[in-house]
């Protein structure tokens, strides 16, 4: 009895490794079971002689060599390992997204602090943000005359709207108390921006950034299918054209995993930047 109480007390104050491993196991086991069931159903559905798509075992067999075991393979032209394909896509996303973040936050602050600007620009933003990412592609191709910047522009234009809108809302929602403090202390515009406006808006900005990264990743795959070159999007299109459905499926899996990682990355950065006791 006494020992039991002791362990309980210790675990309550400093969870030991046992606890942590237990927790991880408890959470991963159901996931694993679900994955196995899904794979089993898939295998079952695709095991008939008339199946149009390969089952998971077939996919594994077709793509094991060289795609899975050698992601860093470097060949001619677009014949690259999956790592390089994904890296090329990520590079485009990074550029478009970074641009969108800078411009989006600036515009968001602008429409947040100025009612005039809000009235002027918000309707435009509301119309443009509903345009599907790929609809921008022909225009950007026409304007840039090159597929690389055109793809980046699509990422930019896709990612910017949630950033603008969330930043704007964040600025408008700065608690009146903080503004009153700033007024009573007669803070200058710059002091107000750095000490009050920006810290108060950070949580909203990150909400926008998180939505934007998801959209960017969605857009890049589609954009690359049309623009070609190295990139996971074109890889999928290329594989389809050469009838290699197993490669398509493997690439889709990778796209999903990378999207998840990107989302987690932004959330992680948010936890570092946003004061966790906003109250």
């Amino acid at each position: 009895m006494a020992t039991n109480i002791n362990t309980n007390v210790r675990s309550a104050y400093a969870p030991n490794w046992n606890e942590k491993v237990n927790k991880v196991v408890r959470r991963t086991v159901p996931t694993l079971v679900a994955v196995i069931i899904v794979l089993a159903i898939w295998q079952l559905l695709c095991s008939g002689p008339d199946a149009t798509l390969p089952g998971p075992l077939q996919v594994l067999e077709d793509t094991w060599d060289p795609l899975i075991i050698d992601p860093f393979f470097q060949g001619e032209g677009t014949d690259q390992g999956l790592f390089w394909q994904i890296a090329a896509s990520l590079k485009r996303v990074a550029m478009g997204y970074a641009l969108a973040a800078v411009v989006g936050i600036s515009l968001g602050v602008l429409i947040g602090v100025s009612t005039l600007m809000f009235d002027a620009l918000d309707p435009i933003f509301q119309v443009l943000r509903t345009v599907p990412p790929l609809a921008w592609l022909p225009i950007s191709l026409a304007a840039m005359r090159d597929s690389q910047p055109a793809a980046i522009f699509v990422i930019f234009i896709t990612a910017i709207w949630p950033i603008i809108i969330n930043t704007g809302v964040g600025v408008q929602n700065i608690p009146q108390d903080y503004n009153n403090v700033a007024k009573v202390l007669q803070l200058s515009k710059i002091q107000y921006f750095t000490n009050v406006l920006l810290p108060a808006t950070v949580p909203y900005i990150f909400t926008g950034l998180k939505i934007a990264i998801g959209l960017s990743w969605l857009a890049i795959v589609a954009a690359e299918m049309l623009t070609g070159g190295v990139g996971i999007g074109f890889f999928i299109w290329d594989a389809y054209n050469s009838g290699n459905i197993s490669e398509v499926i493997l690439a889709i899996l990778y796209v999903g995993l990378v999207g998840l990682l990107l989302d987690k990355l932004i959330s992680f950065i948010a936890t570092l930047v946003v004061p966790n006791e906003m109250s």
């Binding site: 608690p175 108390d177 903080y178 009153n180 007024k183 009573v184 007669q186 009050v196 810290p199 004061p275």
Partner: peptide
């Protein structure tokens, strides 16, 4: 206009949480 010669203690403290 508001100014520091008339400082206010607000009901909800109005401290900057960051």
């Amino acid at each position: 206009q508001p100014g520091p010669d008339r400082m206010v203690v607000f009901q909800n403290y109005s401290l900057l949480p960051w």
